[in-house]
């Protein structure tokens, strides 16, 4: 990374332009993977990973502030717990049918987007947890690194 006088953070113009074009697509692709987790390969973990990668991509290209403006550290920590709690609540709601983790919603027809009962909901909860969790691991390591430089 070359430091010019203009106090520009992040990488070069080429990287920034490409990032601006692709980062939205990466995010969308992640969401697609999450929502179609029950009918095609992928699911909450893989999709969440891709969502997290889009934020990390943003951070690498534009510097820390740009990414943290969209998803701050405190918000990330809260969202992470919310994702985990959501998953637990879905599991506990299975008690209404008598069993923990019971798939209590109507299963629908196979290969439809709205099918498979609680599995898409679980996927969404996992995606929130994994995506935000991975992003906050990255933030924490970066902050640790920058604290040391000072």
């Amino acid at each position: 990374m070359i430091k010019n006088d203009k106090k520009e953070v992040g990488m070069t113009l080429i990287v920034k332009t490409i990032t601006r074009l692709t980062v939205g697509l990466i995010l969308l692709f992640g969401i697609y993977i999450v929502l179609h987790g029950h009918i095609s390969p992928g699911g909450g973990f893989a999709g969440g990973l891709i969502i997290a990668l889009s934020f990390i991509h943003l951070m690498l290209a534009f510097g820390r502030e740009a990414a943290l403006k969209r998803l701050s550290e405190a918000k990330a920590a809260i969202l992470e717990s919310v994702g985990a709690l959501l998953f637990l609540i879905i599991a506990v709601l299975g008690f209404t049918g008598g069993y923990f983790f019971l798939n209590f919603i109507n299963k629908g027809k196979p290969f439809n987007l709205f099918s498979a009962g609680i599995i898409p909901l679980c996927n969404i909860a996992i995606a929130i947890k994994v995506g935000v969790g991975l992003f906050s691991i990255f933030i924490v390591l970066v902050i640790l690194q920058e604290d040391r430089k000072e």
Partner: peptide, 13 residues
């Protein structure tokens, strides 16, 4: 499992 996990996430929230 539910009580202990739930407590962990509630506390962190």
């Amino acid at each position: 499992i539910v009580i202990s996990l739930g407590a962990a996430f509630l506390i962190s929230l």
